[in-house]
């Protein structure tokens, strides 16, 4: 009854659909590939101009150490932007979580592993709390993410200033600075970099391979469709903002380890830097598209530019101009890709 009837082919569906694309269109479409090529090209260019000082283990270490904390922030930001949201609060949450972590370690006292772990838990917890606040207001009160996180951007920094009286906390356990902050795996790879890459890898797998990741894409692509498919969209949004907040908390703890102080005044542009990295990495501000691998490239492009300009003797201010241009180009390519698909 079924088999013979099914084998009758339906007439060709219209021919304007997905036909073979030229190779360059596929490259532009697979955004993390071309952005990876740009990164490789930059590294190659600086290596040719200044081979002796740019191409060295010490310099690679410098670049990646500078990029490590931003990578942790940008990993969370990637999840948020894939849901078609934005998190402007990450830098302030980093500061707040760092302050609460320092306070907790101060309160426990001592210099040992136990104290450091308490500091980590405190940082993750308070980061997660701000993430929950963001997610709750966005999902349940239906306030646009831009405004909610602009509000908590001010609130978290303000709260950190209130708690500290505006004076940086410098009582950071020396063991934390000595191990996580300046220590190296096998004497070569800074722990900061190892931690950041492990975080990026874990969350990259979470995004690409799990149901949590699939829901993240679905919510950003078409929230109404996700809702009708039985996905708890509100719950999922809250979880995504909690991921971003918790990772900002981790970044706060890493920042304590690296600088030995709470650096309250030093993170006002972290949000813009992380958004820039995510968008350069091919994640779409319209939601539904993006990858952690792209974000890794997006974090390293500004870092390589900064470092390369310093080493090649170009005024490092050019870095800001170059990064801005790359950002605009990345968004333009995203729009091209979308308009071709509509």
């Amino acid at each position: 009854m079924s088999a013979p009837a099914e084998s009758i082919a339906a007439p060709d569906d219209d021919l304007d659909g997905a036909q073979q694309q030229p190779w360059w269109a596929k490259l532009v479409g697979g955004s993390s590939i071309w952005i990876g090529l740009i990164l490789v090209g930059l590294i190659a260019a600086f290596a040719i101009v200044e081979p002796s000082s740019f191409v060295s283990i010490a310099n690679a270490r410098n670049i990646s150490t500078d990029a490590a904390i931003l990578l942790v922030l940008a990993t969370g930001q990637t999840f948020v932007i894939i849901t078609a949201g934005i998190d402007l609060s990450v830098g302030s949450v980093l500061v707040f979580a760092g302050v609460m972590s320092a306070k907790a370690m101060d309160w426990v006292g001592g210099d040992g592993t136990g104290t450091i772990v308490v500091g980590l838990i405190s940082a993750l917890f308070f980061g997660g709390v701000w993430g929950w606040v963001n997610g709750f207001l966005i999902a349940k009160a239906n306030i646009t993410p831009l405004i909610v996180t602009l509000g908590t951007f001010g609130m978290a920094l303000g709260a950190a200033l209130v708690i500290t009286g505006g004076i940086d906390e410098r009582e950071i356990p020396y063991d934390l600075i000595d191990t996580v902050g300046t220590g190296r795996l096998f004497g070569e790879v800074p722990w900061l970099v190892v931690i950041a890459l492990v975080v990026a890898a874990l969350f990259g797998v979470l995004l690409a391979k799990t149901r949590f990741g699939r829901f993240t894409y679905a919510v950003g692509s078409n929230a109404e469709a996700a809702r009708r498919a039985g996905i708890g969209v509100d719950r999922h949004l809250i979880k995504v903002y909690m991921v971003a907040g918790t990772l900002a908390g981790l970044a706060g703890w890493l920042s304590l380890a690296r600088f030995g102080t709470t650096t309250i005044g030093g993170h006002s542009t972290d949000n813009l830097q992380s958004i820039t990295a995510v968008v350069i990495g091919g994640t779409s501000l319209f939601g539904g598209i993006g990858s952690i691998l792209g974000t890794v490239f997006g974090v390293f492009i500004p870092a390589v530019l900064q470092n390369g300009f310093v080493i090649t003797g170009v005024q490092p201010f050019w870095q800001q101009i170059a990064v801005g241009a790359v950002l605009i180009a990345a968004v333009y390519l995203d729009q091209l890709r979308r308009s071709r698909n509509r």
């Binding site: 149901r211 699939r214 894409y217 679905a218 950003g220 692509s221 078409n222 109404e224 469709a225 996700a226 009708r228 498919a229 039985g230 996905i231 779409s284 939601g287 539904g288 598209i289 698909n341």
Partner: peptide
Amino acid sequence: DLALAAELPPAANLYLGRE
């Protein structure tokens, strides 16, 4: 309106919410 997540491939849409 079809309620499809346009950025996802067809199979992901077939199983959306029931992966």
